[in-house]
C-alpha cells in the first residue's frame, strides 16, 4: 500500500498524548527534540540559502538604488531613479524594458495553455498498458533531458529558411516553403513556442501521468456503474484526480515560460529586430553585458512583482475551483454509494 493514502494520514498517531507535540497529526514524534537539534539539521541548508538566496534577494534592492557599474570604482546612490526610469517609457531603459516585458508576455500567454493541455493529452495516451509503453514515455520525455542549448542549436538548423528541413517538408506537402521561421514575425514566435512545447512537454506529462496513476481504479468503476459517460468520467474523476498537481503545474509552467532565455538567445538572438528579446534577456544584457547592474536589478524586481501577482491570481482561481471540483467529486462518490 502506498504510504500516501488517505488512511495513513487520518490515523491517530500512537503515543499522541505527548505534551510537546500535542499529537495533533500523525508522524510527529512524541519526544520533544533538544532546541538546538532542528537548527543543526537546518544549518548546512540555511548557510547556502542565506548566502545565495536570502542575501541576494535583499542585496538586489540595495544595488537597484545605485548606479552600479560592475567595472567602475564608485557606485553612486541614485535613490529610486532606476525604477522611475523604468516607468518612463521614453527613457533609454524604460522603453526597451517594456518592449521585452511584452515579448515575455506574448511567449507566456501562447506557451502556457499549450504546455498545460498537450502534456495532458500525452499523459492520457500513455496511461494505458500496451507494448512498448515505457519506451514511448521515454521518447516523449527525451527532449527535456537535452537542455536548451542542444535543442536550440538543433532547431535553428532545422528551421533555417533556406536549407532547413522544415521548410523543405512543408514544400513537399504543398505548403509555403520559404517561411523565415526565425527572422520574421509572427513565424519567430510560432517557432519559439512550438520548440518549447516540443522540448518541455515531457516534464509536465510525467507529472500528470504520476497523478493519473494515483487515481484509484475504483472511482472509474464506480462512475461506470453509475452510468457516467466518457466525458463525465473525465470531468468528474480524472480532472479532480489531477487537482493536486494542476496548480503546481500551472504556476511552475508560468514561471518557466516567463523565464525564457536560451531559446531566444540562441535561435532568434532576440530578433527579428528586438521582437523576441525577452525580459530575462534584457536583464542579462543590461546587467552582465553592459554592466548596468542597478538598472538590471530594478528590472528584475519589476518582473518578479508581475510574476508574483500572476501567481497570486492563479492561486486564487484554483482555490475557487478546487472547492467546486471537490464538491463535484464528493457528489460522484455519494452517487456511487447510494
Amino acid at each position: 500500500m502506498s504510504p500516501s493514502t488517505a488512511h495513513a494520514v487520518d490515523a491517530p498517531a500512537p503515543g499522541a498524548s505527548a505534551p510537546a507535540t500535542g499529537g495533533r497529526r500523525h508522524g510527529r514524534s512524541p519526544i520533544a527534540p533538544a532546541p538546538a537539534t532542528p537548527w543543526l539539521f537546518l544549518a548546512p541548508f540555511l548557510a547556502l540559502f542565506g548566502t545565495f538566496v536570502l542575501l541576494p534577494a535583499g542585496l538586489g534592492v540595495w544595488i537597484s538604488l545605485h548606479d552600479w557599474d560592475y567595472t567602475f570604482v564608485s557606485h553612486p546612490f541614485v535613490g529610486l531613479r532606476n525604477y522611475l526610469d523604468l516607468l518612463d517609457p521614453s527613457s533609454t531603459s524604460g522603453g526597451p524594458f517594456w518592449e521585452s516585458m511584452r515579448a515575455t508576455g506574448v511567449f507566456t500567454a501562447s506557451s502556457v495553455p499549450l504546455l498545460l493541455v498537450v502534456p495532458l493529452l500525452v499523459a492520457l495516451m500513455m496511461n494505458a498498458r500496451f507494448p512498448g509503453r515505457n519506451f514511448l514515455r521515454a521518447v516523449y520525455f527525451a527532449p527535456y533531458v537535452l537542455g536548451v542549448a542542444v535543442i536550440s542549436v538543433l532547431w535553428r538548423y532545422l528551421l533555417d529558411t533556406n536549407i532547413g528541413p522544415v521548410n523543405h517538408y512543408l514544400g513537399l506537402v504543398g505548403l509555403p516553403d520559404a517561411t523565415a521561421w526565425l527572422t520574421s514575425q509572427p513565424a519567430a514566435w510560432v517557432s519559439l513556442v512550438a520548440v518549447t512545447v516540443w522540448w518541455t512537454l515531457g516534464f509536465n506529462a510525467v507529472i500528470y501521468l504520476a497523478a493519473l496513476q494515483d487515481i484509484p481504479a475504483e472511482l472509474y468503476e464506480a462512475a461506470q456503474v453509475d452510468g457516467a459517460s466518457v466525458a463525465q468520467r473525465f470531468w468528474n474523476v480524472t480532472l479532480p484526480g489531477l487537482r493536486p498537481v494542476l496548480m503546481f503545474v500551472t504556476v511552475n509552467t508560468i514561471i518557466m515560460s516567463a523565464n525564457m532565455f536560451g531559446q531566444s538567445y540562441l535561435m532568434t538572438e532576440g530578433g527579428p529586430g528586438r521582437s523576441t528579446r525577452t525580459a530575462i534577456m534584457r536583464i542579462a544584457d543590461t546587467g552582465l553585458s553592459s554592466f548596468q547592474m542597478g538598472s538590471a536589478a530594478a528590472m528584475s524586481y519589476v518582473l518578479t512583482l508581475v510574476l508574483m501577482l500572476l501567481s497570486g491570481v492563479v492561486f486564487w482561481l484554483f482555490r475557487d475551483r478546487d472547492a467546486v471540483r471537490t464538491r463535484a467529486n464528493v457528489r460522484t462518490r455519494e452517487k456511487v454509494r447510494s
Binding site: 533555417d160 529558411t161 533556406n162 536549407i163 520559404a178 523565415a180 526565425l182 527572422t183 520574421s184 538572438e269
Partner: peptide, 13 residues
Amino acid sequence: SPGDVAQDAQYVA
C-alpha cells in the same frame, strides 16, 4: 534577393 535571409545564409548560399 529573397526576403528574410537568415543569419549567415547569404554567405552559405
